[in-house]
Design a protein around this nucleic acid. Sequence first.
DNA 1: TCCGCATTGTGAACTATTTCACAATTGGCG
DNA 2: CGCCAATTGTGAAATAGTTCACAATGCGGA
Lengths: 203, 203
Amino acid sequence: MRKISDSTVRRLSVYLRFLEQAKSPTISSGELARLGGTTSAQVRKDLSFFGSFGKRGLGYAVPELTRRIRDILGLERGYRVVLVGAGRMGGALVQYHGFRQRGFHITAIYDQDARKIGSRWNGLVVRDVKHLESDLKKDPSDIAIVATPAESAQQVVDRLVRSGVKAILNFAPVPLNVPPDVEVKTVNMALELETLSYSLANR
Amino acid sequence: MRKISDSTVRRLSVYLRFLEQAKSPTISSGELARLGGTTSAQVRKDLSFFGSFGKRGLGYAVPELTRRIRDILGLERGYRVVLVGAGRMGGALVQYHGFRQRGFHITAIYDQDARKIGSRWNGLVVRDVKHLESDLKKDPSDIAIVATPAESAQQVVDRLVRSGVKAILNFAPVPLNVPPDVEVKTVNMALELETLSYSLANR
DNA sequence: TCCGCATTGTGAACTATTTCACAATTGGCG
DNA sequence: CGCCAATTGTGAAATAGTTCACAATGCGGA
Ligand SMILES: NC(=O)c1ccc[n+]([C@@H]2O[C@H](COP(=O)([O-])OP(=O)(O)OC[C@H]3O[C@@H](n4cnc5c(N)ncnc54)[C@H](O)[C@@H]3O)[C@@H](O)[C@H]2O)c1
Ligand SMILES: NC(=O)c1ccc[n+]([C@@H]2O[C@H](COP(=O)([O-])OP(=O)(O)OC[C@H]3O[C@@H](n4cnc5c(N)ncnc54)[C@H](O)[C@@H]3O)[C@@H](O)[C@H]2O)c1
């Protein structure tokens, strides 16, 4: 498959959100663009990398385009997701319905702290992180969320990678080293605030 | 000032993190690149937009470069930050020390829910969001964090903008409309998971 | 059936970002 | 003091991403 830019994939995800909320049976690239904060040419170009899904003069059939984008993004299958780090961020994430709605199911939670192990979180019992490898051997997951302190993040990631996890959403504010067949996205909120600071400082 | 790309600003923020942890008195572009996951040419180009801070043959003096980048990013001043939405995400954010460490001080928390108003969070009393405008008139803030449900996010943002807030970190998974002099960064975690899904589906 | 309008799909042009490559320095050492 | 090794700063080249512009439809109505 031709190399698709990250920005295109992110926009597809944005379009998908609006398609799922659309009430009319068809939608034009212009309308999707307006909703998603881009241009109609961009919408059409993004889609054109994957095929031609529209009808000239009419636009796109909402149900079909929705299905196509879900398919492109690999959302038709569901994902089992394990969470490591049952702290404040982990707690917010576990209760967040937005993930489940989109097919990402948190199926296990791990922590190191004896006070947390055994407690019940949103129907799941927090397990000792020492069982991470053996649990993943029995019930593999493709995706893991890392919400441990920065100091332990790399070590946790190494264990996840050894256990066959192929994609990691990382909340610790450190870049992580992984082999090339593993994908990592780091959400770094302090960094986002710093870009806001930059824009305040330079106007 | 010449237009600087978002990716350059984000990398500066990453370099800054490593500079703050560096133990040697000087550092080369190659070393910063290795730590930050980029190339030495990229590091030098990023810095060159703002001046020339290094010594040929030697590298960069850590304390000076640290100061320069903090200055470029506008981090030398501190920021007052208001948080709207005292839910699970808001709770995690209020307790997060990473923001304060970098000069972002949450100074007020607002919610709509009578059960939350008046409760004490990390030393701050949650206030009724109806006081938002009057409070901001007395004590202006440049930055706000929005952690309300998606449905109320735009409405909250409109009120923040009218009260003079110039930068917003948004956790609701919706694009927000703001005037051109206001900067918004949206952190969309479900979207990050979807890009991971895409990479799993296409290998 | 045929016309006119709306809108797609897509090369080509343009703009932005990254990488290359090398002259210019700096400091250390013989 | 002069040479060597290291490393910066930066134009120029290469790559990547966005916007333009228009021919190619498809549909609804006369
Ligand atoms: N709280 C926030 O709003 C926020 C914001 C941005 C980033 N973060 C980042 O997210 C991460 C988690 O933050 P938090 O506020 O939830 O911290 P926290 O201290 O509340 O939670 C971290 C949890 O990880 C557990 N842990 C530590 N080492 C572990 C290991 N090796 N294996 C398994 N579990 C382990 C701890 O026992 C704790 O329960 C941190 O890296 C933080 O920098 C948090
Ligand atoms: N919890 C997570 O892990 C998570 C992850 C990703 C995104 N988000 C997003 O972050 C936002 C907050 O999520 P949450 O899980 O904390 O939700 P939550 O329901 O726990 O909290 C939302 C809070 O906002 C308050 N609120 C509602 N309308 C308001 C208004 N007009 N003014 C002031 N306060 C108002 C509610 O009373 C509630 O306390 C949502 O948009 C959600 O999609 C959350």
